[in-house]
Write a protein that binds this DNA or RNA. Structure first.
Lengths: 200, 200
DNA sequence: GTCTATACACTGATAGAC
DNA sequence: GTCTATCAGTGTATAGAC
């Protein structure tokens, strides 16, 4: 039995966030109006303010949620074994997680400038925490003598940039599937940080 | 002798473009008003329309100019010798060129979505042409047997993403100077595409 | 070449009816 | 929980004086 109209039982909130995510990613935060978001959801603009106190909070919420998910997901995906295996896992995890959420990724990386200072600081701290993941892996790898990098911090930034770059061109149904892409990038990641090649 | 006021002899046009570049990079195209640009230059908003027919054209001009400069500069920097030397030159060139123009780079990469379709196509073609540079180098390197990549196109995209990523953290006067950064990245680039290490 | 004045649409956010 | 109506402010772009 269909329930009486008006009792959507908490589905509108998520729909508002989903619409905002899509539109912010597509057009940019500043270019999206609250009326556009409301129209996408199918409600009036005034009704949006039952789900967010303002536009800025809506954006910050999307970013925080994305980064929290990212950190939590790596916590589960981290094999916690030797550095080379962790590097491989990290490369594959990062690509998989990012190509599954192109909109959230784009917003989290590009709309930092749209945040007010205090909000920015909190989000930036989460980003920074994620950057320490590859740093730890590389530091361990260098210490164990199985990796060779001139600078752990630079190599970590280079690795993240390389992996995140997949989002600029990857499309489902393209020439290579996810697994192939992950494998090729994991390979390049190993070469980048000086892991000795297995087959040469 | 100072010339009579009002005869700035074509300096206002460049100042308009410079102000727009700075502001678009800082706040995003959509968040910047023509009034803000005019205020930065020190003229009224109406006077801007002597230098650009509209805001969109102003943006597209900045992007086109940046990409034209990039392609021309590589044309002069390309040593045109063996693939390994060209890879090294490309990595160093790309980093140097990009960290010297952080605003233009940010705009060219991030405001593509702010362009109307026809304008977008022209800009995108220039970007695509630049991507063929590392593709050619890697193809030659693989053919010559001095590089080993699973996929030339992916490796090119990975290389560009890695190098462009320097712009997200590099600041003049930081821990490492330009030349050191270039050297470290050129090293990682070699490892990434399977060039045999000299010192091991 | 720059100014002021102006057009008219749209902005984020609020108030109060239902 | 959603609606309509509304606020004060700002958006791009143009017209015409100087």
């Amino acid at each position: 039995m269909a329930r009486p109209s008006g009792s959507d039982a908490g589905v509108t909130g998520p729909r508002v966030r989903a619409a905002a995510e899509r539109l912010f990613a597509r057009h940019g935060y500043a270019a999206v109006s609250m009326r556009m978001i409301a129209a996408e959801v199918g409600i009036g603009a005034g009704a949006l303010y039952h789900y967010t106190p303002d536009k800025q909070t809506l954006l910050a919420g999307l970013m925080r949620e994305h980064l929290d998910d990212l950190l939590a997901a790596w916590g589960k995906a981290d094999p916690g074994t030797d550095p080379v295996a962790r590097l491989d896992a990290f490369a594959r995890f990062h690509i998989r997680f990012h190509i599954d959420r192109p909109d959230a990724v784009f917003i989290a990386y590009m709309e930092l400038r749209s945040l007010e200072p205090e909000t920015f600081a909190g989000i930036e701290a989460l980003r920074r925490r994620y950057e320490t993941v590859p740093e730890g892996i590389l530091r361990d790898g260098v210490a164990a003598g199985v990796m060779a990098v001139a600078d752990v911090k630079l190599a970590s930034m280079a690795l993240i940039a390389m992996l995140t770059g997949v989002n600029t061109w990857y499309r489902d149904g393209g020439r290579l599937d996810r697994d192939a892409v992950e494998g090729i990038y994991a390979d390049m990641a190993r070469g980048m940080v000086g892991v000795e090649r297995v087959s040469t």
